[in-house]
Simulated assay, not measured.
Amino acid sequence: MSLFVPYDPADVPALIAAHPLAWVVSNGAAGFAATPLPLLAELDEDGRIAALFGHCGRANPQVAALMADPRATILFQGPQGYISPRLVSNPTWGPTWNYAAVRFDVEIAFVPDETRDAVIRLGAALEGTAPDAWSIERMGDRVEGMLTHIIAFRARVLSQDARFKLGQDEAPGTFDEIISGLDDQALATAMTRATRG
C-alpha cells in the first residue's frame, strides 16, 4: 500500500469542501476538453463519495460532448507547494513538491430539473451560515433568465485515486524542520494531519 493515501477516508470529502474548484476533463469527437467548475461531493451511507454535483453553462461545447459520451475525469487540487532544502539541516536532502490531489473517473448525467437546486446548494456551501450570506432570492427577477443558460449535472463516481504526498516518507526530524520553517500554513496543517492524524 502506498504511503501517500489519505490518513482518513473523510479527508477526501474535506478536501473537496475546502477546494471545490475542479477540472472536468472529457474526450469527445472534437478531442479533449476541460472546464474548471466548483462541485459538491455527494456521499453514500458509508461516507464515501458516490457522485459530484454541479452546474455549467449550456453554451459550453463540453455539454454536447458529454451528452454524446458521458465518461469524464474530474481533478481536484488541495494544499500544495514547493519544499525547499533550505528548510532542512541535512545538506544531502533534495527539494520536493508536496500536495493533496484527487482524480475521479466518472459518468456524467445532466439533470436540468435540478439546476435551481444546484445553484442553491452550491451557494449555501460556499457562503456558509453568516447572517448576510447570499441566497438565490436576492437575484429577484434575474433568476429565471440565469437558469435558462445553465444546466445541472451529476457525475457518478466510477473510481477514485487520492494522492496525499505530504511528507509521510520523511524522517521525523526532517519533517519537524520542514513544518517549523514552512510559511504555507494550509500545507503545514495538511502535512501534520497526513502523518500524525
Rank of each mutant, 00 (worst) to 15 (best):
L66V: 06
A65F: 10
G57C: 09
A125C: 05
V143G: 00
F110A: 06
N60Q: 13
L126Y: 12
N98R: 00
A125H: 15
A64N: 03
W93E: 02
F76G: 12
D113F: 01
F53I: 15
D69A: 14
P61G: 09
N60I: 06
R103A: 15
W97G: 00
T96M: 10
D113A: 15
T115D: 11
F104P: 03
L126K: 09
T148W: 02
E127R: 14
P131Y: 10
S84D: 14
D113P: 01
T129H: 08
R103S: 12
A100L: 09
R121I: 01
S84P: 13
R71L: 05
P61C: 06
G78T: 06
P95N: 05
F104Q: 02
P61M: 03
P61S: 10
D141P: 15
Y82P: 01
D105Y: 09
W93T: 07
A101G: 11
G57I: 04
A125K: 04
A130D: 11
E137F: 01
V102F: 07
A68R: 08
M146T: 04
S135A: 15
P61I: 06
A133L: 14
M67I: 09
V111I: 15
G140A: 10
H149W: 01
T96G: 08
A130T: 14
A59R: 10
L87V: 08
V111K: 14
V143Q: 00
A64R: 05
R116D: 08
A124M: 04
P61F: 13
Q77V: 08
A65Q: 13
I136R: 10
Y99W: 11
Y82Q: 00
P70E: 03
I83P: 02
C56D: 02
L126G: 04
D105K: 03
P70T: 13
Q77S: 07
E137I: 01
T92D: 14
N98I: 00
H55N: 13
W134Y: 09
L126R: 13
A51F: 06
T96W: 02
V106C: 06
F104L: 08
R138Q: 10
D117T: 14
G128Y: 09
T115G: 05
T115W: 12
M146G: 05
G128Q: 13
A50L: 07
L87M: 15
A133S: 12
A64H: 02
D132Q: 11
I136P: 08
V143P: 00
G54A: 04
T73K: 05
R116I: 05
I136S: 12
N98S: 03
V143D: 00
R142G: 13
A101V: 13
P91F: 02
D141M: 12
L147S: 01
R86N: 11
I108Q: 02
D132E: 12
E114P: 05
P61A: 03
R58T: 11
F76I: 06
V88N: 06
R142P: 05
G57W: 03
S135C: 08
